[in-house]
């Protein structure tokens, strides 16, 4: 099933006289259960594409359909509501809320949804369980290691069972060992929980764990076909 359709999306920034076009008429299809990695040089526009799909950045032109809804047409408020129920965002730096405990941080996205307190509790517990941090539920971010913080960040991103989980260089700030843990965890999120993942990374090894590997170069996407040479991703 096609979950996300990026159709002829262009992003331009006016930078004084010149215009930068990090994304030029880009097309991409993401299917239910996919795990995509998005690679590319620094400044190539990876974050920009991810943010547009996550509904926090605007396209210059083109459409982004998620489960049939063109999110580029939604008002700011509606888009916020849409994000609450459709997107889980894993940040490069965990971006946890310092005054809230691990449990409360994970609970935050659920406060945006219609849900009983009991249901909320169950979901938070399951999410913390999934990232193996049940024993840290009452800890504040400052009391945890970087890897633990990032795991709380992952629990927070998956707790609402979003349509799509996006991660922008989720291991960018972590050491090798922790990176491995986090990548494993992401793989489990995809395999065991069946969630659809889109991950930006500049680390080739990290990208290897994804089922599909996309490169962004000079405003265009190319997908590495399993066991074959690169080929341009075709329009949907």
């Amino acid at each position: 099933m096609t979950l996300v359709q990026v159709k002829n999306v262009t992003k331009q920034y006016a930078n004084g006289e010149e215009t930068i076009t990090p994304l030029n008429e880009v097309n991409l299809e993401v299917h239910q259960g996919d795990f995509l990695s998005l690679m590319g040089a620094s400044g190539s526009g990876k974050s920009t594409l991810l943010n547009m799909i996550a509904g926090i950045d605007e396209v210059t032109s083109g459409e982004i359909l998620v489960e049939g809804t063109d999110i580029t047409k939604l008002s700011r408020g509606k888009l916020a509501d849409w994000r609450a129920s459709h997107v889980g965002y894993i940040f490069q730096t965990h971006n946890l809320i310092p005054v809230l405990t691990a449990y409360e941080n994970v609970e935050m996205p659920l406060l945006l949804l219609k849900m009983s307190a009991a249901e909320r509790r169950k979901r938070v517990e399951i999410a913390l369980e999934a990232v193996n941090l049940t024993d840290r539920a009452t800890h504040y971010p400052r009391q945890m290691s970087g890897g633990q913080e990032q795991r709380v960040g992952i629990a927070r991103a998956i707790v609402a069972s979003p349509t799509l989980v996006v991660a922008d260089e989720p291991t960018g700030n972590l050491d090798d060992e922790t990176t491995e843990q986090i990548l494993e965890l992401l793989q489990r999120v995809n395999n065991e929980l069946g969630m659809t993942l889109l991950m930006v990374t500049h680390d080739i090894e990290a990208s290897e764990i994804a089922k599909r590997q996309i490169r962004l170069e000079r405003g265009k996407l190319t997908e590495r076909q399993a066991g074959s040479a690169k080929s341009t991703v075709t329009a949907a």
Binding site: D81, A84, F91, M108
Partner: peptide
């Protein structure tokens, strides 16, 4: 600022 933007990214309205 970062925290307030994170809340927005999550879906809290401004």
């Amino acid at each position: 600022v970062r925290e307030l933007s994170t809340l927005q990214a999550m879906g809290f309205r401004r």
